[in-house]
Amino acid sequence: MAEWLSLAEAIAAHVRDGDTVAMEGFTHLIPFAAGHEIIRQKRRNLALIRMTPDLIYDQLIGAGCARKLTFSWGGNPGVGSLHRFRDAVEHDWPAPLELEERSHSDLANAYVAGASNLPFAVLRGYSGSDLPRVNERIRSVTCPFTGEVLAATPAVRPDVTVIHAQKADEKGNVLLWGVLGVQKEAVLAAQRAIVTVEERVRTLDAPPNACVLPSWTVTAVCEVPRGATPSYAHGYYERDNAFYRAWDGISRERERFRAWTEEHIVHTRDFNEYLRVQNDPGIQVAYR
């Protein structure tokens, strides 16, 4: 059964140094509040997995939390580069970052394999691509029925998965909708799962076939309104496109990034206080 905890308690209890961590959300419902809390609690040597590292992992990588990144598309969507990710790959700053690079199709299949308790994923992929040359974990398997050679890649099995969703009820049953990404598979593939939600409700009133994660598949659930901003939560708030653009400037230089992280994450008590700082025009004038 999921336990209702504060986000600080959930990260303290369930995300440990050295863990393999997946924080999913495909543009939508990205668990930024949880990412900040991991930075605040100074977790180290994490092996991060995420299809699109996005700003959330740019922040974690720049803050020195990561030793490895498994990913399939590492850009700032609609804007350009992830500068902290690039600085780590190109200049080993703040630390060398081991890469395990795959394609979207592969990682999506690999989460399914993990959730299905299978050791590997099979897909018709990577033909003619150089990716298998630089990732020795992209291998092949021959179909025993047709002889077709298919790509085989290891299942994703995180120690802990963290996602954000719209609602959870008192028991900790979780409901999400809109662009669903791989969140359900990521939760079911993991040993432990933390879910932050927009609101705690008495009942979900979910229609049949809705994407519901039963309470007993989730370890901890935390109420964190706006916990996915600057990404969005369908039905609650929109994507903060201006912040995605501003991040390009904030993250480009190490010192500016460090100052931003100190002021917004390290020196704030929680995500609520982050939102206050983030919405304070007097403070933000320095970063726009």
């Binding site: 699109t52 990913f71 399939s72 598309w73 590492g74 850009g75 580069s81 992830l82 990710f85 690039r86 790959v89 190109e90 690079e101 795959r102 394609s103 979207h104 199709s105 897909l123 018709r124 992929g125 990577y126 033909s127 003619g128 691509s129 150089d130 990716l131 630089v134």
Partner: peptide, 21 residues
């Protein structure tokens, strides 16, 4: 070079399988 890139681009995304399938 992949191991020591001059510019690290975003990566594959869906493109390898879109271009093949």
């Amino acid at each position: 070079p992949y191991g020591k890139p001059k510019v690290r681009l975003p990566g594959a995304g869906g493109a390898p399988e879109i271009s093949s399938s």
